[in-house]
């Protein structure tokens, strides 16, 4: 599996994502600067966490309009897998690749802690190494993780099995406790929790590692 990590001004989980991808695939991901206009030939594009453009205007809003995003949108339409974590999820919603929006946490504070996630759909290319309905522990670290979409959209996401991860306990005010969703084609995942932060036992757990192992299994 060949991978790329997009780097925006203010990305700060780009290295962590690169380490997780390198460990899972055995090869270095391409680090792609946001001003580039064309992605290298890859099977997966990761949009990492951080504070692209300092979260100014709205988290993810400016990064979604960076030059490289046009090609990310094109490649996603052609079936290339796209993984957006935290700020990456915010960018994917702002870019229109995923429905809904991430609002300020309900308690208005930044939240950094391990949370339990229920795997609602273990059939996606991102979640195939998890057991359907199981609970996994992955950290969150965000100020704007409060997922919002209108009721019809939420019903559609639920009905189509596109809610992949759900918080086991209320975390940030997200509608229906949604933590991660896929697009209708199933090749774009956005999630607020950080799987790349729990891939080694020393970090406090390895539940995040299985997401990357699942991608390797699906994409070679």
């Amino acid at each position: 599996m060949k991978t790329a990590v997009i780097v925006f001004p203010g990305s700060n989980c780009d290295r962590d994502m690169a380490v997780a991808l390198r460990d899972a695939t055995g090869r270095e991901p391409a680090m792609v600067w946001h001003r580039d206009t064309e992605l290298p030939d890859v099977d997966l594009v990761a949009v990492p966490g951080g504070f692209s453009y300092g979260d100014y205007l709205r988290s993810g809003a400016m990064a979604a309009r960076s030059p490289i995003m046009r090609d990310v949108i094109d490649k996603a339409a052609k079936g290339v897998a796209v993984l957006g974590v935290c700020n990456g999820f915010q960018i994917l919603t702002e870019a229109g690749l995923l429905p809904g929006a991430l609002m300020r946490n309900a308690n208005l504070s930044f939240i950094c802690r391990d949370v339990d996630l229920v795997v609602e759909n273990a059939q996606t290319m991102f979640s195939s190494r998890y057991d359907q309905g199981s609970t996994v522990r992955i950290p969150v670290a965000h100020h704007d993780g409060n997922y919002f979409a209108d009721e019809a959209t939420l019903d559609r996401l639920e009905g189509e099995g596109r809610v992949v991860f759900r918080y086991a306990q209320a975390c940030n005010g997200s509608r229906r406790d949604i933590a991660g969703i896929v697009n209708d084609a199933g090749n774009v995942l956005g999630m607020m929790p950080h799987p790349e932060r729990l891939i080694e036992a020393e970090q406090g757990g390895t539940d995040g590692k299985r997401l990357f192992e699942g991608l390797v299994a699906a994409l070679g």
């Binding site: 700060n12 380490v19 504070s109 950094c112 802690r113 670290a141 790349e196 020393e202 970090q203 406090g204």
Partner: peptide, 25 residues
């Protein structure tokens, strides 16, 4: 307090807040 701080970014924090000393790889 410390849950309002991102204490894990960098993925090298192996002794998190609350212990005698923090440990960072």
């Amino acid at each position: 307090i410390w849950e309002q701080y991102d204490h894990m970014v960098g993925a090298d924090t192996i002794g998190r807040p609350g212990g005698d000393a923090a440990v960072v790889r």
